[in-house]
């Protein structure tokens, strides 16, 4: 297994229509290390699905190239599809058939047969929690059950790499919770999982690595920890402070004198301080020495949404770590 399970260079896809030219993916170079949960994050229309389609040879790139598990995405796409479990966006099933029959077709296309196939089907249905529905027709399944069946399809070949395209879109909160649990379990087994999603809150916390995509471009990519550190360094630190009594305006000037302070807002007893570096200790010491009792002193923790908004506005750099 290569250290980088996915590596692309300047991957570009242009759709030519009548009188229009859409650059769906624009010179994307991504690197996905082995064993991580990689979130491909971005709004609808960012080019995530097209990028994933190109990785498995479903769509041919207009320019650039890449490798998945060491195989060329253009010349060896069949080898990739043999080894990668894929849950495409808007996956469909033969509704009049049971999950077992749908999975049998998928299994046979992957070279499985007989007892081995039967056992694998039972195993994956158990993994995704559909064992008790194995004899019902898929037509009777809810959206969440279908997505779980899609995951079962992806897992049937026991892949080391999973590509999940918008896996929780349209699923109810309970279904999302179940899905998250499944992804966590799969990640613990050492599989590399790439999740493309626009639902940052739902799946973002699962990711160890992310790439933020917008309008076909990768805005930032790397390990989540490093991206957050980078974000804090660039965006600065924000402290929410609540004093026990109303402060005078002089405190604002005093805080500014600490250096590296970007902005101080005082509203009665509440202070919001923004600084370029971590001033938590200095600020705390200064306020307590001045005799203020602090009812609240917290540093705002950035969320994935904050990071996404920051980079999507073009304020961040391209790569972290």
């Amino acid at each position: 297994m290569p250290d980088l399970v996915i590596e692309t260079y300047e991957l570009t896809k242009v759709f030519q229509g009548i009188g229009q030219r859409i650059v769906a993916v624009n010179e994307v170079s991504i690197k996905v290390p082995n064993g991580v949960v990689f979130g491909l994050l971005g709004p609808n229309g960012a080019g995530k699905s097209t990028l994933l389609s190109m990785l498995i040879g479903l769509t041919l790139p207009t320019k650039g190239g890449g490798k998945v598990l060491g195989y060329d995405i253009v010349k060896e796409s069949l080898e990739i599809r043999k080894r990668v479990g894929i849950l495409p966006e808007r996956i469909g099933f033969y509704e009049h058939l049971t999950p077992v029959r749908n999975l049998t077709l998928i299994g046979k296309l992957n070279g499985l047969s007989g007892k081995e196939l039967e056992d694998r089907i039972k195993h994956v249905l158990r993994m995704v929690g559909l064992s008790e529905h194995m004899h019902k027709n898929v037509g009777a399944f809810s959206r969440g059950m279908r997505q779980r069946l899609g995951l079962a399809c992806a897992l049937l070949k026991d892949p080391d790499l999973l590509l999940l395209d918008e896996p929780t879109a349209g699923i109810d909160p309970e279904g999302v919770k179940v899905f998250r649990g499944l992804v966590r379990d799969l990640s613990r087994e050492g599989r590399t999982i790439v999740i493309s999603t626009h639902l940052l809150r739902e799946l973002g916390p699962l990711c160890t690595h992310i790439a933020i995509m917008k309008e076909g471009r990768i805005l930032v990519q790397g390990a989540v920890k490093e991206i957050f550190e980078d974000f804090l360094l660039k965006r600065g630190f924000t402290y929410d402070i609540s004093l026990s009594e109303v402060a005078d305006q002089g405190i604002v000037e005093e805080i500014k004198e600490l250096g590296n302070v970007v902005d101080v807002q005082l509203k009665g007893r509440d202070l919001i301080v923004r600084s370029k570096v971590d001033l938590g200790d200095e600020l705390y010491d200064m306020l307590t020495k001045r005799g203020y009792r602090l009812r609240k002193f917290t540093m705002r923790k950035p969320t994935l949404e904050d990071v996404f908004l920051y980079y999507s506005r073009g304020e961040g750099a391209n790569e972290v770590g």
Binding site: I56, L58, R81, I86, P88, G92, L105, L109
Partner: peptide, 15 residues
């Protein structure tokens, strides 16, 4: 295409 089954099949190792 409409049912999404084509996508399911073509993401498997088949030309």
């Amino acid at each position: 295409k409409e049912r999404g089954t084509l996508r399911m099949i073509l993401t498997q190792p088949i030309y």
